[in-house]
């Protein structure tokens, strides 16, 4: 039986439902290898353009060149867009090692400045999410579980109230006292204190409204949106844990751009080294294989 999934013109579409486990895996890997390990210039430009735009809002707004009401939606968009380049860096997709490793780490550290998400904590907890997807005890993102998107939003707001348990903190505690974890905690503390320090300094020096419009409120709104699109939507309803069932394809009513490519998040969970901008192409090629495996193809 021909298992070359990409060679349809010569041999016709293979019937993946008749294939065994090994043949399906080989067919899936044949497609994945076309995209694995590519350097994504798209994500590099995304990182630099988004960060530059957000940083530029400060002088533009503080000097009165851009009104605060105009800066607010732009900053919110910047916060929403800032996570995904860091997400690529968390998986070392810009450079696993070698002479460009510094670039990978630079993108990881700086991309999420608007979101104030410490890179090392993000990386450690995200790897735990991949290892334990949908596990109620071990998946740090399990707390996003909700019956609908608006339940998710309400739960998310409730979780941010003072004194509520922090699942990322709990995960770090579980990971123990290794040098990596301690470094992550220290960096996380320093970045969080720096954020609040800068915010208060800006506020007391007469720029509270600008700080609220460019950082504080966008961060709040953006983190809810990111969590909904990256954690809730692709894993909803979070009841299954198998490799081919813990993440779904969903037909996003808001479109691929507004869902930030998360429709194809299943490809990311299967092959995290495929850069985001090729997840869609890889999914379209893999779709018959994923359907044969019983993957979930649903709507938002």
């Amino acid at each position: 039986m021909n298992i070359n999934a990409t060679d349809k013109t010569l041999t016709g579409t293979p019937d993946f439902r008749e294939m065994g486990e090994q043949e399906l895996m080989r067919a899936e890997m044949t497609i994945a290898r076309k995209y694995l390990g590519r350097f994504s210039w798209f994500m590099l430009v995304w990182w630099i353009a988004n960060l530059t735009c957000w940083l530029a809002l400060w002088p533009l707004t503080l000097t009165g060149m851009l009104p605060v009401w105009a800066a607010f939606p732009i900053a919110t968009l910047n916060v929403i867009l800032c996570y995904l380049p860091s997400h690529e860096a968390q998986h070392s997709n810009f450079a696993k090692n070698g002479r460009l490793r510094w670039l990978n780490e630079l993108i990881g550290y700086t991309s999420t400045i608007p979101l104030v998400l410490p890179f090392k904590i993000a990386r450690l907890t995200h790897m735990e999410h991949h290892t334990h997807t949908n596990d109620p005890e071990l998946d740090p993102d399990y707390n996003v579980k909700a019956d609908s998107w608006w339940h998710f939003v309400l739960n998310n707001i409730a979780r941010r109230q003072p004194g509520r348990p922090n699942d990322y903190g709990r995960t770090l505690e579980r990971l123990g006292n290794s040098a990596t974890v301690n470094r992550a905690k220290l960096e996380g503390l320093a970045q969080t204190l720096a954020f609040w320090g800068i915010l208060c300094a800006l506020a007391w020096s007469g720029h509270a409204i600008e700080a609220a419009a460019i950082w504080w409120l966008p961060r709040y709104i953006g983190s809810i949106y990111i969590s909904m699109m990256l954690s809730w939507a692709p894993h909803h309803p979070m009841t299954e844990r198998g490799r081919y069932r813990n993440t779904r394809y969903f037909d996003a009513t808001v479109g691929n751009i507004l869902s930030m490519g998360m429709q194809y998040h299943i490809v990311h969970h299967l092959h995290p080294a495929i850069p985001l901008n090729w997840n869609g192409a890889a999914f379209r090629e893999m779709r018959p294989i994923l359907e044969a495996r019983g993957c979930r193809m649903e709507t938002f």
């Binding site: 609040w196 915010l199 208060c200 506020a203 007391w204 509270a208």
Partner: peptide, 11 residues
């Protein structure tokens, strides 16, 4: 005190 107070004052 650190953020809401000046935000309210400036508003």
């Amino acid at each position: 005190v650190g953020f809401l107070a000046p935000l309210i004052a400036q508003t």
